[in-house]
Computed example of a mutant assay.
Amino acid sequence: MQPLLDTIATLTPNPTEAHRIFHGRGGLHPGCEHLALDAFPPVWLLASFSQPLSEVELAEIHCALSARCGPTLSWAYQFRHEGRSETRLMAGSLPEPQHIVSEQGARYLVHLLRGQNHGLFLDMAEGRRWVREFVAGWPDKRRLKVLNLFAYTCAFSVVALQAGATQVVNVDMSDGALGIGKKNHQLNGLTAAPGMGTASFLPHDIFSSWGKIGRAGPYELIIVDPPSFQKGSFVATKDYARLMRRLPELLAPGGHALLCLNTPKLDLGFLQAQMQELAPTLRFVERVANPAAFADVDEQRSLKVLVYQAPALG
């Protein structure tokens, strides 16, 4: 656990943006592979995966955080194992009535004490930066329609609209997650603001019907960020192919697709081989780099974010 304690000893006590501080899961810190420490200002969140921490270890971590952050320290601990999680507030308090964090000029609601997912996936920060830069650089601002599949709380939609997208269609099976997404748009002044694009929110199982999604297209950007394994919803090994087949007909000429996959069990070749087979007209452009804090001993295990482009007219 010493690498985690060493990191805590050098952390910035009052960070302004949400980000990962310590990524033991990347395998670069032997003995800490089960640990991750995140900043959701003004709260620190420590997570352990599969292997719980003892009360003695938690007390040692508390002392390290307290020595660095002083009397204003607020932190929580979450133990995650086999799809279940238990979260405890260890010191301080959470902001009331709502916890709002910032990232790259956008604001998001988070909920650290409820469930495994907190409202904002920090490992996707560079993916959101890529979307912001792509939209800002699009030559024809009169039309830039974005399809955000598996939208969750719609962070991609927020940055796309901030950068000038004309319309974003957010699709997710969870009406509750989309409800938080609507609040995220309100937080950022993206609802009915003059000169702003529009967002729609569709609580929908895409595999039951593509009709509504297809009629709203074609799209200049499609974002595909599914769970790697969610029983009854999405299993990457069999369901990603069903998405890939749809991309050519949903993309506008010259449009781009951002494909995301976050599991150490499937490598880069899984996405690339299937795209070559199922959507051969789309050209591979680049792999978006992950945030530096999420460095991994094997980049094939880490989050994979790939960009593809449809052929242009003519």
Rank of each mutant, 00 (worst) to 15 (best):
I21E: 03
D140C: 15
P203Y: 12
L37W: 05
A59G: 13
P227K: 07
S74A: 13
I206V: 10
E286K: 15
Y308N: 14
V171W: 03
F229V: 06
R107T: 00
Y219H: 07
A64R: 02
A151C: 05
S48E: 08
Q274M: 12
S174G: 13
S157L: 06
V146M: 02
F284R: 04
D267R: 15
L65M: 05
A295E: 05
E220W: 04
Y108M: 02
L266W: 10
V168A: 12
G27W: 08
C32V: 05
L122I: 09
M244I: 14
G127M: 06
W130Q: 07
W130T: 00
R68Q: 14
Q272N: 11
R84C: 12
I100W: 05
F207L: 05
D38I: 01
V307T: 10
R20G: 13
I213Q: 11
S74L: 00
T263R: 02
G232H: 14
G127Y: 10
Q78V: 01
P248W: 08
E96I: 01
V171I: 11
N188S: 08
H185Q: 15
L112D: 03
E249S: 13
N262Y: 05
M124R: 06
S228G: 10
R20Y: 07
Q116I: 03
V131H: 03
R20L: 15
G211P: 00
M173E: 06
R80A: 13
L258S: 07
H99P: 08
R132D: 00
A9N: 05
W75V: 15
L147D: 06
L109H: 03
C32N: 09
A236R: 11
P194C: 03
K182W: 01
Q162F: 04
A151S: 14
R25A: 06
V224N: 06
A252N: 09
F234W: 08
G255D: 08
S209N: 09
R25I: 05
K183P: 02
N262H: 08
L113C: 12
L46N: 04
H62C: 11
H29P: 01
S48W: 02
R68C: 06
K304D: 12
L53R: 12
E277H: 11
Q186V: 03
I206R: 02
V235P: 00
W130F: 13
I223S: 04
N188R: 09
E126Q: 15
Q78A: 14
Q300A: 15
A252R: 02
L73E: 00
N170Q: 09
L4P: 06
P3T: 10
L202M: 11
L53Q: 08
T12F: 07
A155Q: 00
E277L: 12
C260S: 10
T153G: 01
G255H: 09
I213S: 13
V158M: 03
L45D: 02
Q230Y: 07
S74D: 01
F40K: 01
G31T: 09
S208C: 14
G254I: 15
L250S: 06
L73S: 00
Y240W: 10
P71E: 03
N148M: 00
G211R: 14
F79A: 07
F229C: 02
V297C: 13
E86P: 00
